[in-house]
């Protein structure tokens, strides 16, 4: 669609984005508030960041969270990519309907259900709740997100690339690894990033599946938030937002730059003809 941008269109876009961003911006601003009272501006200060860095419980939780996110995102990327390949390449196999159901359902499944059911599973198989169970739980739900992201890339992937590799003497598995995987790599990386942030984010499932000694950052933030708003939490949140935003923006700029370069090259090739 490409029409004139009416006044109404502009207003709805501006209002929509203000609604989306204003709370986050305010949160960031108030993390630099000198006053302990979160709602009264007491001048600029970075003291809460210092306080945050001295809070050992918080740092321990952050370390747990990053370990969980790293492991589960990586495992979820492998499993999710396999699931995406299975769904796009094999249109017919026994239980395909159940399989695609299990891939799509976790995307919308209420977290309380996923969390509760996983916990009951771990108890049923007598698995102690540790950081490992959180990793298993996160892998399970984020692999489905990876599968969806990779699948949407795979459906537009030109199968003849892989066939060409085979035609030129490359066995099927090697053809997948040397041709398909590099081409769909951006989607796989995006899937990994998504899985990483989902894990970084999760409170509910982690609360169900983690045991003592494996408190994640969202769990720590949650228990403090319940007691009220503090500038220190604002500071933690700001750091997290900055981290994720930097990652996402950097990734998309890299992506965009390669696209621009590509477009320019295409135009060049066209002129030369």
């Amino acid at each position: 669609m490409n029409g004139r941008w009416s006044g109404f269109n502009i207003v709805s876009v501006v209002v929509g984005f203000t609604f989306l961003y204003l709370p986050i911006v305010l949160l960031v601003i108030y993390s630099f508030n000198a006053s302990r009272l979160v709602t009264v501006w007491g001048g600029f200060s970075t003291q809460w960041y210092g306080e945050m860095l001295r809070n050992e419980a918080l740092l321990a939780a952050a370390s747990v969270t990053f370990r969980v996110a790293l492991v589960s995102a990586t495992a979820a990327t492998v499993l999710g990519t396999l699931a995406a390949v299975a769904l796009t390449r094999f249109m017919r196999f026994r239980g395909r309907l159940l399989f695609s159901g299990m891939v799509f359902a976790p995307l919308v499944m209420p977290e309380v259900i996923t969390g509760l059911s996983l916990l009951l599973l771990f108890i049923a198989i007598d698995l102690d709740r540790t950081i490992v169970t959180v990793m298993l739980a996160h892998t399970t739900f984020s692999m489905c997100f990876v599968a969806v992201v990779v699948q949407s890339r795979l459906v537009t992937f030109d199968r003849s690339l892989e066939e060409a590799a085979q035609d030129l003497g490359c066995p099927p598995l090697k053809a997948f690894l040397t041709v398909t995987l590099p081409v769909i790599a951006p989607a796989v990386i995006a899937g990994w990033m998504l899985a990483f942030t989902l894990s970084l984010d999760d409170l509910v499932i982690a609360s169900f599946t983690s045991g003592s000694g494996a408190t994640t950052l969202p769990m720590r933030i949650y228990s403090q938030v319940r007691l009220g708003v503090t500038p220190e939490i604002n500071a933690v949140c700001t750091v997290l937002i900055a981290l994720v935003t930097t990652g996402v923006v950097a990734a998309s700029i890299l992506n965009k730059r390669s696209m621009v370069r590509r477009e320019r090259a295409e135009r060049m090739a066209f002129d030369e003809r």
């Binding site: 305010l26 949160l27 984010d201 969202p218 604002n234 996402v248 923006v249």
Partner: peptide, 18 residues
């Protein structure tokens, strides 16, 4: 998409202050 990447918990928390 960007807010979607930032923590759900943080975004809910932001509203408490407001």
């Amino acid at each position: 998409i960007l807010p979607f990447w930032t923590s759900f918990l943080i975004r809910v928390y932001a509203w408490i202050g407001i």
